[in-house]
């Protein structure tokens, strides 16, 4: 019995991540051009924020989906991505996929802190976060990734709901 309890507790600890809803911590998104955007400055609009690895095919596909959503929800949705892979060429990534939203870089430690993860845990990418107009995180990928938060149809429903919130 004791072993089972320890096992369960260990399992919970392994899956630990920030709860939703919770206030989005501050984040500075620095693009390759040097332009910096503070996450708090986007308050008032729904924000779709993704933590990506520029080499990850899922992240590349998701970026194209996010770009389409940005156009669809023009003016109501702000999309931003931050790459956490070392030496990420975010300018080349932006050009390659024709992205019109800011793509910055971040350290793994800063990303873990934002997502409420313990440092160094295995991670599924992209890690997608949806933030409402008041700066509350209302959806976040599971630690090992949530494919549903990379699909156009589901994100459209989620963003529609978030834009209708007061």
């Amino acid at each position: 019995m004791k072993r089972i309890l320890i096992g369960l507790l260990a399992g919970v600890a392994l899956h630990a991540q920030g709860p939703v809803p919770r206030p989005a911590p501050e984040l500075k998104i620095v693009e390759a051009s040097g332009k910096a955007t503070m996450l708090s400055s986007l308050r008032g609009r729904v924000v779709l924020l993704a933590f990506i690895s520029t080499q990850c095919p899922h992240c590349q596909r998701a970026s194209v989906v996010f770009e389409a959503l940005k156009r669809e929800f023009s003016g109501k949705l702000q999309v931003a991505e931050v790459a956490f892979d070392e030496g990420a060429d975010t300018a080349a990534f932006t050009r390659r996929f024709g992205l019109t939203f800011p793509v910055g870089s971040i350290s793994r430690e800063a990303m873990d802190a934002f997502l409420g993860l313990e440092h160094g845990q295995r991670l599924g990418t992209p890690q997608v976060v949806a933030i409402d107009r008041r700066g509350q995180i209302r959806a976040q990928s599971e630690r090992l990734g949530s494919p549903i938060l990379q699909t156009h149809d589901y994100l459209r429903v989620l963003i529609s709901a978030l834009t209708e919130l007061r």
Binding site: Q17, P19, V20, P21, R138, A139, Q140, S141, E142, S146, P147, I148, T151, D153, Y154, R156, V157, L158, A161, L162, L165
Partner: peptide, 21 residues
């Protein structure tokens, strides 16, 4: 993890899970 207080149409999630299955 999605905030369960949000009112979301279940169709999109259902279609996603059916496709995935």
């Amino acid at each position: 993890m999605i905030d369960h207080t949000l009112v979301l149409s279940p169709t999109a999630a259902l279609v996603f899970h059916l496709k995935q299955a």
